[in-house]
Computed example of a mutant assay.
Amino acid sequence: MDTVPYKLLVVDTENSTVLLTDGESGEIIREWPFPGEYSPVDIQLTADSAIAYIPTSNNQGRGTLFSISLPAGQLMQLPLDLPPIERFAAGPQLGQAVVATRDGALFLLDIEKRSLTLLGRSGEPTACVGLATDDNAVYTVWQHDQNGVLAIFSPDGQLQDERFLPGLPTNLSQSERYLYIPFTTASAGEEGMILLPKQISEAALRAISLHHCPSEASFRIYPCQVAITPDESTAYVVHEDSANVSVIDIASATVSGYIPVGRSLSCLTLLPDSQFAVAGSYMFADLSLIDLVNRRLLSLTDGERELFGQVAVLHSGR
């Protein structure tokens, strides 16, 4: 099958290098080295795809933000000391980002002004496992012991809404209308994905069980990340422990099928035509190409490089 032309931004963790590659051939177009003491936390594009952000942390309890100006082809390190970064989300405005740290604090990072403003800090042991922004809000999910919490803040840090979640959330994704929260449990029990309209004051949580595949009945699947098609018709839920991907029909909030991958995956990024996806594996440090139409694994990277699971996809014109 032919794919819509695209490029990938990938992090080679072994060689501490950001790679720009041709999506179809895998040919490396450009490389940007960064200091080896830092490990990537994520890689994200701004809304206009002009800048790629690579938030990082090191073993000395320090975080830093690298950015690549894609039109200029220049990598820069933000000259601002940051606490160790656990989660990162570009926005809510251009030139801003929200950062969650390992000690349960939430900060607004003004990249242009090089300033860090505390939005809030948990009063009890907690971990931020998901973070997203849009023009109106900052969405966060947290693990508290055996439970989970969704907390929504205004861009200036005012708490707008809070919901307790079933089980332990593992991540957070968003589309224009919905929040998607995969969850697991501290002990053997139901695992699934929560589907929640963003206007949550008038909406109830819908938890979609992901125990519909007979081969998964006897062990945990650990749903860990959700990718959504641009038309918001389908969600793909990655199962890190059961070697497959759930396909969710969003309109009916039901499981419509599974993609048997046969290996552990940690994250999934849809390609421009939504017929294919690139999946990353933290266990194997490689990338997979998945055919979403025929629901099968197509290929793997050759293993000569250790690749960070998250990637950023650029249309060929970028």
Rank of each mutant, 00 (worst) to 15 (best):
L82Y: 13
L179P: 04
T126F: 03
Q146A: 14
F164M: 08
G61T: 11
N59A: 14
A127Y: 02
E86V: 01
N147A: 09
P92Q: 04
N58Q: 12
N171P: 04
K113E: 14
Q174L: 14
D134L: 05
F88K: 03
T56Q: 03
G123I: 09
S187G: 03
F164V: 11
Q77K: 13
G91I: 07
T64N: 10
Q143F: 00
G104A: 10
A72Q: 14
Q77M: 14
S115Q: 14
W142I: 11
P79M: 05
Q160K: 15
S69P: 05
D145G: 11
R121I: 10
Y180G: 07
V99R: 12
V141P: 03
T140V: 05
L150S: 00
F66N: 02
L165G: 02
L165S: 12
L119A: 02
I181M: 04
T140C: 01
G123N: 07
A127S: 15
G157I: 08
L70H: 00
F164K: 14
I111H: 01
P166M: 04
F107S: 06
V138W: 00
P83M: 11
R102P: 01
G63D: 03
S175I: 06
T140S: 15
L108W: 01
N147V: 07
F164E: 12
L106M: 07
A105Q: 08
A188W: 08
Q143W: 03
C128V: 02
G167D: 01
N171L: 02
R163E: 05
A151I: 13
L118N: 00
